[in-house]
Design a binder for these strands. Structure first.
Lengths: 110, 110
DNA sequence: TTGCGTTATACTTTAAGTTAGATAACGCAA
DNA sequence: TTGCGTTATCTAACTTAAAGTATAACGCAA
């Protein structure tokens, strides 16, 4: 039978989801590439969707998570703000605690 | 800003999801009505979908959660097995612990 | 044997979300 | 001033999960 407790967590705001597994992965790829387009390709996600996610995060957080600039030397740049970096760390900590919770829980059905 | 930790949990098997919020609600409505059709109407869910959910649960649990019988006095009957009742209680306990976890967690971002 | 309300199942249609494709705007560097 | 690669945005096409529609099978009761 092999019953396995599972789940997922995220952070909401009044306007909707703010931070979750997909967004975290996207932010990390932005951090690595410096480009929203490259990050979306690595995520195998359309540019439109990742742009929407980032823009939503920026609005919902009240303070920019990612700084987006178009034009210039390399065509443009996408960069995490210090606040964005803090947000990643905070969510990862939350998820770590949740994974511990999941691991510790034993369903009593046999 | 009002950041609110949120999440959901469920129970998986090797064949896929076995128990979660929607299924629990469906099981409780079956318990109350004795009918899969009436339960689906109360859930505002198509009969086909609820039938599929119940059938999957029965298969994935290895042991019936809901007993389905067609024909007879009232056209047919849907009834939780004792094992099904235990499954409900077990999941609710799991969820209670999870809600406690969520409530206790304070994100450190301000 | 007929009617009833349910379970059981196939097929079609709808709706929502996602992606694709195209194009404008931008600003540095050559 | 031109070219480049990116951000930004619109519209159309596609995909897929869900619901709708229809019908068969069942077994008790009248």
């Amino acid at each position: 039978m092999n019953l396995k407790p599972n789940g997922r967590i995220w952070i909401d705001t009044d306007q909707g989801a703010f931070m979750g597994y997909g967004r975290i992965e996207l932010l990390e790829k932005i951090q690595q590439t410096g480009s929203l387009r490259k990050a979306s390709i690595e995520m195998e996600m359309s540019y439109q969707k990742s742009w929407k996610l980032v823009t939503q995060m920026n609005i919902r957080a009240g303070e920019p998570i990612v700084s987006l600039k178009k034009g210039g030397k390399n065509g443009g740049i996408a960069q995490l703000t210090p606040f964005g970096e803090k947000a990643i760390l905070s969510f990862k900590e939350f998820d770590h605690a949740f994974q511990q919770f999941l691991k510790s829980y034993k369903p009593n059905l046999e």
